[in-house]
């Protein structure tokens, strides 16, 4: 934690221009090349709904969709998404502008407490429920689906229930009967 190389560190910071579409809005910004996507979204675009809990890929708070795929924004440089299209929690809503079924279900099932992990969960769940992959809505299947996001408050039970409710609401409950609690 003490002194390291001096010459390089004092050199000027390299910057680059980047264009992205976030939640349907196009942005163009000049950023330092080392800027993490999480910081870019939060501090350059003011989209503070994406949270940062670890900056090493474990907690999932920073998860956003990059071209439809759930991605850790803390393990992505802003310049790596140049030309791509992103969705953050601010862009998640139902067709009528209200809560998306995933958001609604999380509230109905008490799937959030402090709310810090919540945007990451919403995005991760959304990717799966929107994907063409076969869903496993058994208790174990849902737990595996959301494993990859940490929550310190809820003990996950409400989130598991919310995934099932949202899957039904989104018409993805082909397997919902499987392993559902009595």
């Amino acid at each position: 934690m003490t002194g390291v190389e001096t010459s390089e560190a004092v050199e000027a910071e390299q910057k680059t221009s980047l264009r992205v579409v976030v939640n349907g809005t196009a942005y163009e910004r000049v950023v330092p090349v080392r800027r993490l996507l999480s910081d870019f979204l939060r501090h350059d675009l003011g989209l503070t709904g994406t949270h940062v809990g670890c900056e090493h890929g474990v907690c999932g708070c920073c998860t956003v969709l990059v071209d439809g795929r759930a991605t850790r924004s803390c393990l992505t440089l802003a310049c790596q998404v140049d030309g791509l299209s992103l969705t953050t929690i601010e862009g998640v809503k139902s067709a009528d502008g209200g809560l998306h079924p995933v958001q609604q279900a999380l509230s109905d099932c008490h799937g959030l407490q402090c709310g810090y992990c919540t945007p990451g969960f919403v995005i991760s769940i959304l990717e799966v429920l929107n994907s063409p992959d076969e869903l496993d809505l058994s208790e174990e299947g849902v737990r595996e689906m959301i494993s990859g996001n940490l929550c310190r408050c809820t003990g996950y039970q409400g989130i598991v229930d919310a995934v099932r409710q949202a899957a039904v609401a989104m018409g993805r409950d082909g397997d919902a009967g499987k392993g559902a609690p009595a």
Binding site: E5, E55, C74, Q80
Partner: peptide, 22 residues
């Protein structure tokens, strides 16, 4: 970047250049 960036975020690795293959 799923291994390299954690290393860089912890500053366990401080590469002078990064060559992105994307």
């Amino acid at each position: 970047g799923q291994s390299l960036l954690p290393i860089m975020n912890f500053r366990l690795g401080r590469p002078e250049q990064v060559i992105d293959l994307r």
